[in-house]
C-alpha cells in the first residue's frame, strides 16, 4: 500500500517591511520618520548655526540664502533651532512613551498572567482612563511647576492605562495557545515563559500601538509646551517655538508656522506609518 505524501508548503510570508512599502503613503511616512530621527540625532553636526546664539542685527528675517528658514524674534537661526527643537520634542515623546509603555505592558501582562490581580489592575486602569491627558498635564505642571519633566510624567501617566489594556488583551489571546500549555508542561517557570513566549508573541500589536501613540504623545507634548507648561525658554522645542513666534505672527508668520508645520509632518508620518503597520501585521487584513 502506497501513500502519496502531499507536502503542504506554507506560502512564503512576505516580510513586514515589504508589505509596508507596497503602500506608497506608508513608504513616504517611513522615509520621513527615518529622516526626522536622523536629523534629531545629528542636529549638532547638521545645524549651520548655534541654536541659542542671538543676533539682534538680524531678527525676524524671512527665509533667505544665509538663513534657510529665516531667524526668530531674537535673531536666532530657525533651521538650527528646528533641528534642536526636533530633538527635544522627539526625546520628550520617546521618554514618556518608553516609561508609560513599559509600566503599561508590565501591568497588562501581570493582569493577564496572574488572574487574581486582574480585577484590581484593570479598575486602576479604568480610573486612570477617566482623565484626559491634558488634565494630567495641568495637574502635574501645577504641582511640580511647568517644564519638560512635568510633560514627560503627565504623558507617561496618560499612556499607562492605554498600553495596559492593549498588552492585557493581546496576552490573554497568546496565553490561550497550545504552545504555552506545552511550555508549561515542560516545567518552564513564569519569568522564562513570559520572556520567551509571551513577549515575542505580543510584540506586533504593542508595536502598532506604540507607533500610533508616539504621534499622539508628540501632539500632546507640543500642545503643553505651546501653552507654556512644557519646555521653558531658551530651550528649543517645536511647541514652545510656535508659542514664542505667536507674538510676531503679523510681522513674521514663519517663526510660529514653521515649527507648527514641523509637528504636523512628524505626527502625520507616525500616524500613517502606524496605520500601515497595523494593516501589514494583521494577517486577517491580508488577502
Amino acid at each position: 500500500m502506497s501513500t502519496t505524501v502531499t507536502e503542504i508548503v506554507a506560502p512564503a510570508r512576505p516580510g513586514t517591511l515589504k508589505l509596508l512599502l507596497r503602500e506608497p503613503a506608508a513608504a513616504v511616512a517611513l522615509a520621513i520618520v527615518v529622516l526626522v530621527i536622523l536629523a534629531a540625532l545629528l542636529a549638532p553636526w547638521l545645524a549651520p548655526y548655534d541654536p541659542f546664539e542671538t543676533d539682534l542685527m538680524a531678527v525676524m528675517q524671512p527665509p533667505d540664502d544665509k538663513y534657510l528658514l529665516g531667524t526668530d524674534g531674537q535673531g536666532r537661526d530657525m533651521l538650527s533651532r528646528m533641528l534642536f527643537g526636533l530633538r527635544v520634542t522627539l526625546a520628550m515623546g520617546a521618554l514618556s512613551l518608553g516609561i508609560g509603555g513599559a509600566i503599561g505592558v508590565a501591568m497588562g501582562f501581570a493582569a493577564a498572567y496572574y488572574r487574581r490581580v486582574d480585577g484590581l489592575l484593570m479598575r486602576l486602569a479604568d480610573i486612570m482612563l477617566s482623565f484626559p491627558a491634558i488634565l494630567f498635564g495641568l495637574a502635574i505642571a501645577a504641582i511640580f511647576g511647568p517644564g519638560v519633566t512635568a510633560v514627560v510624567i503627565a504623558l507617561a501617566v496618560a499612556t499607562v492605562p492605554l498600553m495596559a489594556r492593549i498588552a492585557r488583551s493581546t496576552a490573554l489571546v497568546v496565553l490561550g495557545q497550545d504552545y504555552i500549555e506545552a511550555a508549561r508542561a515542560q516545567g518552564m517557570g513564569d519569568a522564562r515563559l513570559i520572556w520567551r513566549h509571551l513577549m515575542p508573541n505580543c510584540a506586533s500589536p504593542i508595536l502598532v500601538f506604540a507607533t500610533l501613540r508616539f504621534g499622539q504623545v508628540i501632539l500632546l507634548g507640543s500642545a503643553l509646551s505651546f501653552l507654556g507648561l512644557g519646555a521653558q525658554p531658551p530651550i528649543a522645542e517645536l511647541g514652545a517655538m510656535a508659542a514664542q513666534g505667536r507674538t510676531f505672527l503679523f510681522f513674521a508668520p514663519h517663526i510660529s508656522v514653521i515649527p507648527a508645520i514641523g509637528i504636523f509632518v512628524v505626527v502625520l508620518a507616525f500616524n500613517v506609518l502606524g496605520d500601515a503597520l497595523r494593516d501589514a501585521l494583521d494577517p486577517r487584513l491580508r488577502v
Partner: peptide, 13 residues
C-alpha cells in the same frame, strides 16, 4: 488622518 495629526494651535494660527 490629517485631522488627527494637526496641532490645534497650527489650525488656529
Amino acid at each position: 488622518v490629517a485631522g488627527v495629526s494637526v496641532p490645534v494651535f497650527f489650525l488656529g494660527l
